[in-house]
Simulated scan of single mutants.
Amino acid sequence: MEEQKKLSTTYKILRALGFNYSEEEYGQVSLWRVIKQFFGNIYRKRLEKMMDWPILAPVCPRKLRPWLLRRIGCHVGKNVFIGDYVHVDLNHANLIYIDDYAHVTAGCRLLCHQRNLKDYHVGDNAAKCGYRLGEIHIGKGVMVGMETMIMPGVSIGDGAIIGARSMVLSNIPAYTVAIGSPAKVVKEITQREGSSIITFQE
């Protein structure tokens, strides 16, 4: 009873403040956590805005943006290219892994949470469904085309190429080309004749 009362109080306070957590999540979310997250988001949002400072344009893609993504919480390897207006899931940036030599080009969005619709049925309110979280793994030398959206739980294998404006809902094997919404493999990259070692170069 006491737990239900506490849940109800937290629910009412957070709703009054404009936070739209589902009822399922209110049992796991304290007011302190929300306040902490709120100010953390302000800090991370400021870092995200710095990624597109025009005055630093020459060093933005390979120096500033990868460094800022690390500060936001992403795991970013060496010699990574991050294009203009790339957005990551600020609340769950620690679930994003971008490996060495990967290219995430302009306008891409990396999303690590989405509504869990597993138990959603006719007559239910989708806003009351909880969220599911999933890590995003972008392998070595991956090229992600402009304005692509990568969804939670997706792994993109080394050397894969994702066509522009794709929506990646499931894993993409290494050294393939995938395009579309949802992204589907349309080509497998062959190994160069006489070559047995894979290396990544700038």
Rank of each mutant, 00 (worst) to 15 (best):
K187Y: 13
C129H: 09
G141M: 01
R165F: 08
D124T: 13
F200D: 00
I189R: 15
V122C: 06
I197F: 10
I161E: 05
G180L: 12
N116P: 03
E188Q: 14
M146Q: 09
R132S: 08
R165C: 12
E147C: 06
R132E: 15
V185R: 08
K118V: 13
I156L: 06
S195H: 11
L110V: 09
G145E: 00
A102W: 05
A174N: 07
I156N: 02
R165W: 08
D158C: 00
I189N: 10
Y101K: 00
V185P: 01
K118F: 11
I172F: 07
R192Y: 12
D119G: 04
G157V: 08
Q114G: 14
G107N: 10
G180I: 11
A126G: 00
R109F: 09
D119H: 14
M143E: 02
T148W: 03
S181N: 15
I138K: 05
K184G: 07
A160R: 04
Y101I: 02
I189Y: 11
Y120W: 14
I179D: 00
E188M: 12
L169N: 08
R192S: 13
V185W: 07
A127D: 13
L111M: 15
Y120C: 13
K140N: 09
T148S: 10
F200A: 03
I156S: 04
N125L: 12
I172M: 07
T199Q: 11
L133W: 07
Q191H: 11
I189W: 09
A126Q: 13
Q114W: 05
K184C: 08
I162N: 00
D124N: 15
P182M: 11
A178Q: 06
V144H: 06
L117R: 10
C108K: 03
H103G: 04
G159A: 06
H113C: 12
D158P: 02
A160D: 02
I198Q: 07
H103E: 03
P152R: 03
V168M: 05
Q191K: 15
H103D: 05
K128L: 11
T190P: 00
G141A: 04
T148L: 07
K118E: 15
M149V: 13
I172K: 02
V168A: 05
N125I: 12
R165I: 03
T199V: 12
H103A: 07
E188C: 10
D158T: 04
E188V: 15
V104K: 00
I162K: 01
S196H: 13
V168L: 03
G130F: 09
A160I: 04
G130Q: 11
P182S: 12
A102K: 00
M151E: 09
M149Q: 06
M167T: 14
D100K: 01
V122L: 12
G163K: 02
V154F: 01
G163E: 04
L110N: 04
G134I: 10
T199C: 02
F200M: 01
M143K: 04
Y131F: 14
A174W: 03
E193C: 07
I189L: 15
